[in-house]
């Protein structure tokens, strides 16, 4: 508690030096927040849809139907960007990466709705030529127009994080910034540094290595929360079909099989529910608590409306 207070106080001085927000960036931020579902109306309780089942494809369909259907998510001509977690050379069974069947279900649905393009940028930890095939992601994009890639230095754009307390600048994958529809699609797993790796932590694959390293030096949890005030997903889809309980994030670790996919437009609410699968509360995962304090979303499980769907 004490450390957080210090961290919050220290960067306040830096705000003076902060340059003014560029208009373009502001517009981009606004456009992300196209709520895909009437279920998540503003100022009412945040909704988390939890789909239980065994076939990821059917689970996605059932979850999206509950959210309000594909048509509201994928508009014709839209630029869709998906950010799965494909950081490690880990097979779908080992649970280190987002399940490829979930990824493919979204890609096929987006193509069917005639979106302009589908990009999947991921700053992997292991080299992408290892992680993309091993994770099953290469198979997931097979035969589609989706572009799966690890961004080069020129494919990042430096942005300001206006509400950031420590992280005030970050280099972010351009395609994620420019998307009309941004889907944050992590896998839920244990993490040595961040306690749990869920949707907000997943943005660490959206930024470049220098930003990533700086976050570890300067205060990981605060930086994760800072960045989540900036990059707002249209939809959060957390893969909890199997979850890694230890030795994360790389694994292989001990697995549990909740057989769930979690959907929400509130990343904090989605992460809070996902943390409960690990028997953890926002008090155990500082970035979830801090994100709530910064107004990103709701971390009070009692206030979150969990709607369960069977598929």
């Amino acid at each position: 508690m004490n450390t957080t207070a210090q961290k919050a106080a220290a960067p306040a001085a830096r705000i003076k030096r902060r340059t003014f927000l560029k208009a373009g960036t502001a517009a981009a931020v606004g456009s992300f927040y196209a709520a895909p579902s009437s279920a998540s109306a503003e100022s009412t309780a945040p909704v988390v849809i939890v789909v239980h089942g065994t076939d990821p494809k059917k689970m996605v369909e059932a979850g999206i139907a509950k959210m309000g259907g594909w048509a509201k998510l994928f508009k014709p001509g839209a630029k869709v960007a998906i950010k799965p977690n494909l950081a490690w050379k880990s097979t779908p069974e080992q649970g280190g990466n987002t399940h490829p069947d979930i990824l493919r279900a979204f890609i096929l649905a987006a193509e069917a709705r005639k979106v302009k393009k589908i990009t999947i940028p991921e700053n992997t930890c292991h080299p992408e030529k290892e992680t993309f095939p091993t994770s099953g992601a290469l198979d997931a994009i097979k035969g589609t127009s989706a572009k799966l890639y690890r961004p080069k230095a020129s494919e990042y754009k430096e942005v300001e994080v206006p509400k950031g307390k420590i992280c005030q600048k970050a280099k972010v994958s351009r395609d994620l910034l420019e998307a009309d529809c941004l889907i944050n699609m992590p896998v839920a797993k244990h993490h040595g540094g961040a306690t749990l790796s869920l949707s907000m932590k997943n943005w660490m694959g959206a930024i470049d290595n220098n930003t990533r390293r700086a976050w570890h030096r300067q205060g990981l949890h605060q930086c994760i929360a800072d960045f989540s005030t900036f990059l707002k997903p249209t939809l959060v889809v957390i893969d909890a079909t199997r979850i890694m309980l230890d030795h994360g994030p790389q694994g292989p670790g001990k697995l549990a099989h909740p057989h769930e996919i979690i959907l929400s437009t509130d990343p904090v609410a989605a992460d809070t529910y996902a943390a409960s699968l690990f028997k953890k509360t926002p008090a155990d995962v500082p970035h979830i608590r801090i994100a709530d304090e910064m107004g990103v979303g709701c971390s009070d499980l009692a206030k979150i409306k969990v709607e369960r769907v069977e598929a």
Binding site: T3, C125, H191, G192, G193, A194, T195, H216, R217, Q218, G219, L220, H221, H247, G248, P249, Q250, P286
Partner: peptide, 19 residues
């Protein structure tokens, strides 16, 4: 940064393939 600055880091643990 963990020992000296009390930061959550554990990147070495994250990357270590041999645990």
């Amino acid at each position: 940064v963990a020992w000296e600055n009390k930061e959550y880091c554990a990147v070495c643990d994250e990357y270590c393939p041999y645990k």
